[in-house]
Structure formats: structure tokens, C-alpha cells
Design a protein around this nucleic acid. Structure first.
Lengths: 131, 131
DNA sequence: CAGTATCCCCTTGGATACTG
DNA sequence: CAGTATCCAAGGGGATACTG
């Protein structure tokens, strides 16, 4: 067997057309502390700023604001201002944002399914380090 | 239409069983600066330390070492030492490591396919900010 | 209510020097 | 060759105070 059927080649996502840069950007973009959590909440329904903050619980205003701004900038969420007193701002996923959830969900499924394999590997690693 | 068919609910990957924690961990784990790049190179074939360093080009020894250690710890790569003079150390993906490439590839495909939608959203965002 | 501005800590990651 | 040890700069992210 010369070429393993299950093996994915580097060029599939790290070729010379900047592909690897794109996937790295995307991963670091959604791999931060809050993005996935926020997107997942907005995946259920539209929410206001304070609602998100209260639901998430331990997020700072600063990080909620900046994460939402980045998501808005990249076209993943919309920001709708209702100019009342007090003001009201609603956030919702765009089509692109809902689209993003599909591959993220796949990675989530993989993570859950293989969590104990990783845990076992870590236990083995610690074991070997101690022994 | 009460429940949109394309909408993914929060609980799908952020329920109360620690699932959201797992996906966040995984994303921040592979969302760092070097992991995907290294895993993608090892996806092509086994490589030695210096070979990886030369191929990647601009990675520091420190980051290559620590990234490889984490990958080894989590069971994604194997580390094989040949006690010669000078010593030789080979790194290769495990079954689990090759497995991981599948959902990562899906996310990579998505990133490439939607890169210009994101780019357009950014351009629009800058436009609106300026106007 | 929904932010912005400021300060400060901690982690990530690069550069350099040293070792088995 | 394949690391480890150390120092340092930049950015992520929290706490607090202030504003339209």
C-alpha cells in the first residue's frame, strides 16, 4: 500500500495559494476564549447585549464588545440598534454565521467522540514521564 | 417555519455535559500559531526535528519543541528517538492524529470556500466605518 | 443599556545562549 | 542534532471608571 487511503496530504489545506494561511487565520479567529460560545448562543436565537452578558455570566464587557465587533466585521453577526431610552442593541447570526456552525459542529462532534482517547493519551504521557 | 432546518442549536455542542468546554479546548489547542501547520506536514510523511524546522522555515526551536510535546502528550504524534551520534528524532502522526485531520480539513475547505465572503464583509465594515 | 477608556496582569512566542 | 534555559516584547483579557 503506497498511498494510505485515509491520509490527507499537506497540500489539501496548506498549498502555496495561501490556503494554509486561511485555515490558520480561521482557527485562531474562532479559537479564542469566547467566539464559539457566543456564536453558539446566537445560533439558538437573536439576543441583546446584556442578555448575552448575563447568559454567559463570566465574560467582561470589554471582551463581549470586542468579540461581537470582530464577528460583525467578518460578517458572522448583524448588529441592530434600536434608538430608544435606554438604547437596545440586538445581535443575530447571519447566513454566513449559521454556515460556519456546520464545520464547527463537525469538529465539536469529533472532540466529544475522541475526548477520552486524548485523555488516555495524556494519562499515558504523565505515566511515562513519572516512571 | 418554527424551527429553521439549517439552524444548529447551542446545546448541540455547548450543552451542560462539558461539551462546550471540550470544543473550546480543542479549538484553542489547534488554533495556535503552529499546530495545524505541523500536523499538516506530518500528514504527508514522517519527519525529523530539523527537517520540520527547515521546512517550516520561520519557526523557533522553542515553539517547535513545545508544539510537538503537546501533540505527543495528546496522542496526535509519536516521537521516536534513535540513539546515534548525532541523535535522530522522528515525528509521525498517530491514527488519532490522522483522524483529526478530517474535521480540520472540513473547516479548511469551508474557510477557503468562504474566504471572499468574509473579505467582502470586512470591506463593507471598513466602508461603513469610514462613511 | 450599551458601550468606551484606562490600567494592569499573564500568557504566547521570538531571540539567544548553552548542553548531552 | 535535538533539545533546555533564560530573557524580553507584544497582545489577550480582566477590573474598574466613565459616557451618550
Amino acid at each position: 500500500m503506497q498511498a494510505q487511503e485515509g491520509t490527507l496530504a499537506k497540500r489539501d489545506f496548506c498549498d502555496e495559494t495561501g490556503t494554509c494561511h486561511k485555515i490558520s487565520d480561521m482557527l485562531s479567529r474562532i479559537g479564542d476564549k469566547w467566539t464559539v460560545l457566543i456564536v453558539s448562543y446566537l445560533g439558538e436565537r437573536q439576543m441583546r447585549f446584556s442578555e448575552l452578558r448575563n447568559t454567559i455570566g463570566n465574560i467582561s464587557q470589554k471582551m463581549l464588545t470586542s468579540t461581537l465587533r470582530k464577528l460583525e466585521r467578518d460578517g458572522f453577526v448583524t448588529r441592530t440598534v434600536t434608538p430608544s431610552r435606554p438604547p437596545r442593541v440586538d445581535y443575530a447570526l447571519t447566513e454566513l454565521g449559521r454556515d460556519l456552525l456546520v464545520p464547527v459542529q463537525a469538529l465539536a462532534d469529533w472532540s466529544v467522540k475522541n475526548a477520552d482517547r486524548i485523555e488516555q493519551a495524556r494519562a499515558r504521557f504523565e505515566q511515562d514521564r513519572a516512571g
